[in-house]
Amino acid sequence: MSLVAESVSAGYRGRRVLNGVSLTVAAGETVGLRGPSGSGKSTLVRVLALLHTPDAGHVSLDGVRIEGVRHRVPVSVRTRIAVLFQSPRAASDPRLTLADLIAEPLRAVRRPREGIAARVAELADRVGLTADLLTRRPHAVSDGQLQRACLARALAHRPAYLLCDEATTMLDASTQALVASVITAEQRETGLGVLVVSHDPALLSRWADRVVTVAPPRRSDISAPQPT
């Protein structure tokens, strides 16, 4: 059981960002991913999250090669991989309250209304959001509170894999610790496979089972991840 990027090359409008990168995140493990700015860490996350089409290579989920990205991928497959973005503000629809934000993935797959309310309450409790905060919109809460709501949203479908794209960079130390502890608890409970992208070596050494480094592509260089 694993989420695998195999020899993935990807870029934007002809500019190559990833060159033949392979990475495996097994169920239940936490993989750290580091590399300098511009090395393609976020692009690799987007490819693994089935949001960006690779120019070459492919993504496999639990041994099955995934064809296509975004809406071309069946909902049952998409919802097995969750993403926690760096900026909770950019990742939140400014019109929705935090409760609606958390409920959105459940509503999108037409879960029964009572089940949604119970699941939202359970997730909010898990990430420490009070009932008062749930009625607020993103502009009325802090980055930390909003990222906790985004984490609750990411866990709504009980995904098999969670990709954290520098998700704790904008948070204070206590919220960082809370986010990490919630993810670790979920991992123990459900066998969640986690990819943590970060510039912070201390965080990666504390949190990740292993760390891989991605280097920026230079001419013909291949940025194959090197275990450290």
Partner: peptide
């Protein structure tokens, strides 16, 4: 291209829901 649309797609929202709700 906003991340909240990516988050909605990853959360299982179809094209119609993205258009009408987001």
């Amino acid at each position: 291209t906003r991340p909240f649309i990516d988050a909605a797609i990853a959360g299982g929202a179809g094209r119609t829901r993205i258009l009408t709700r987001h």
